[in-house]
């Protein structure tokens, strides 16, 4: 019969219309921006720099190794190394970025900088509402605008951040152990000499 298919289709739309009042399955729209869907943990938008502690400048994990700058596909990262050094999270003196710019208008959120960073210093943010009326300067983020605390990182990517923290703690413990071992070795080296000296001094007596 002509029109049967149409009626069948209309039945389907009627089912969906009626269903949208009772079933969450059929009503999937949300009234953004008043309502928001929670973002999944892995969600990524643009990179940020992680810092430990309260002072963003002192706590930046980045050591300006420039690997991310080289690996970035659209070349949106610009880094200038510092002339002096400051201690990093294990206490080793390291170079820090005197300048660290990311041009968000060029960045394509590919996460390659995060993958290649050996210092867990750059991570992906999930903030995507970054509209600005300044076309050039407004989307060029310097290191102050990029810096986010480790707590913030924990807030947006809890599982990943916990893993990173565990790894860093392990590294730190290793480094401390090594430092201790080095100190102990140095002490051990010094000790026989120290022990020998009084002995030498003791002989003539």
């Amino acid at each position: 019969m002509l029109g049967e298919g149409l009626l069948k289709g209309l039945g389907e739309t009627a089912r969906n219309f009626a269903g949208s009042f009772v079933s969450k399955e059929r009503l999937t729209t949300v009234q953004y921006p008043e309502e928001r869907e929670p973002l999944p943990e892995a969600s990524r938008a643009f990179p940020f720099l992680v810092y430990d502690g309260a002072d963003w400048e002192a706590g930046l994990r980045c050591v300006a190794c420039q690997i991310c700058e080289k690996e970035c596909p659209p070349k949106c990262i610009y880094i200038e190394k510092s002339k002096d050094k400051k201690p990093d999270y294990v206490g080793k003196p390291q170079i820090y970025p005197a300048k660290f710019d990311i041009d968000i208008s060029v960045c394509m959120s590919c996460q390659i900088c995060v993958e290649v960073c050996p210092f867990e210093a750059i991570k992906m943010d999930n903030q995507f509402e970054l509209a600005t009326d300044d076309r050039f300067g407004g989307l060029l983020y310097d290191r102050k605008e990029l810096a986010r605390s480790n707590e913030y990182y924990h807030k947006i990517h809890p599982t990943e951040a916990a893993e990173v923290d565990a790894r860093l703690a392990e590294e730190k413990a290793k480094a401390e152990e090594k430092a201790k071992a080095v100190a102990a070795a140095a002490a051990a080296k010094a000790a026989p000499a120290m022990a020998a000296k009084p002995a030498e001094g003791a002989q003539p007596q």
Binding site: C76, Y78, D101, I102, D103, V106, F136, L140
Partner: peptide
């Protein structure tokens, strides 16, 4: 015209 994060030869 404008390239805020230009590199090397660029």
């Amino acid at each position: 015209e404008y390239e805020p994060t230009a590199h090397d030869d660029v």
